[in-house]
Design a binder for these strands. Structure first.
Lengths: 207, 207
DNA sequence: CCAGTTTTGTACCACTCAATCCAAAAGGAG
DNA sequence: CTCCTTTTGGATTGAGTGGTACAAAACTGG
């Protein structure tokens, strides 16, 4: 029984099927890069993290560099999804931003202070690699757009100050999220992180 | 003529003198690590960045790892010094923090968006290396102490809100600085960075 | 069972890595 | 000059890097 029509062969010979799930493997690689960074992660590490042999890794993902880009894309996709989930259950614009910052802190403390792969990637590469820079810029733009929309909603519902442009509020919150992820990665305590989040939220509250 | 008594030999044989300045070499290595990170910087890169040959690098700095730690120490020393210079010409507590954030932005834009070596190091290593973690913690503690002192002064002179603990204000500003350095490293425009700084400063102003 | 295609494991490649060795060079005290 | 030391440059090391080659294995439509 074939559930995925894209894998039918219409008479052409059927190749040996894969013994692994590509997405799971990608996720493993993502975790490895996330923990150690691009340079420090060897191809052997990637084999261990994906559970694949060398041949399968290269056959599936072509090269370490391309695998990294795909892992980064995957990370960004997951991030967009989980942020949307947090935002959609907010009462108003300010509450959305409050929940977002709290969710960052909770996530860090329940998942071992991994920080953010995009933040780590920016720190490691800066703007030296055009392809990676493009991914980072796309993620940043998406994040900023969604935050600016929160700000606009908050200004409309009266929870967020109208003294600032939505765009600027978005930049501020985005910067705060990066700051929190770095705090976590260097091992800061929860109270310090909540203090930062509280001051940031209060800064945006309507007076 | 000998100006440095620590280098006299009191009758013992005098070795061949070095052909370079150790601090200059250290600074070169620091810049290399700053630009590319620890893993991506090879010993050849370090030879080029310091202007020394392989032998001299190893003879002087023992190993890549130890050289990195010394470069990080050096970076932190320079940072403490330049922050103190900025802070001491401030009018009041809030102005000190405002000047600090503006100086970060100016520094980034005049020195090619290098970001912060400590931030990059935290992103690259997390808390995996105890020695590096100790250096990061020492730098963070020093930075936080000086910021908390600013906050206390600002609360005393009436420029900074008394609704928050100095310690929390310090964490918030520190996080904002990290956020700004990351923004710069990923290539953000000046207006975006000044917007972040302005909102952060306004958040701390006495009402 | 066969044909035809991809996957998989093993061995292997050239190269770079951090680090070491050693002899020649360089200097001042005596 | 000689002596003793450290520095310096060049050659070299062994381990590990990212990546490849190739044949055996696995699968299904015919």
């Amino acid at each position: 029984m074939c559930t995925d029509l894209s894998k039918t062969w219409y008479g052409r010979p059927v190749p040996r099927p894969r013994e692994f799930d590509e997405t799971e493997a990608l996720e493993g690689a993502m975790n490895a890069f996330w923990a150690r960074g691009y340079e420090a992660t060897s191809t052997q590490d990637l084999c261990a993290a994906t559970g694949l042999g060398r041949s399968s890794v290269y056959n599936t993902f072509t090269s370490k560099e391309i695998l990294f880009r795909r892992a980064l894309e995957h990370y960004i996709r997951l991030g967009v999804r989980s942020r949307a989930a947090v935002l959609e259950q907010a009462d108003d614009g300010l509450d959305a931003i409050h929940r977002l910052l709290e969710s960052v802190i909770d996530d860090e403390l329940t998942h071992g202070r991994r920080g953010c792969l995009v933040v780590n990637t920016v720190a490691e590469f800066g703007t030296t690699d055009p392809e990676i820079t493009a991914h980072v810029e796309a993620d940043t733009a998406a994040h900023l757009a969604s935050l600016a929309e929160c700000a606009r909603l908050g200004q409309a519902d009266g929870s967020i100050t109208r003294d600032r442009e939505p765009r600027d509020i978005a930049e501020f919150v985005h910067s705060t999220v990066s700051g929190l992820r770095l705090m976590s990665r260097r091992g800061a305590e929860r109270p310090a992180m909540t203090a930062v989040a509280d001051i940031a939220v209060a800064a945006l509250a309507h007076r």
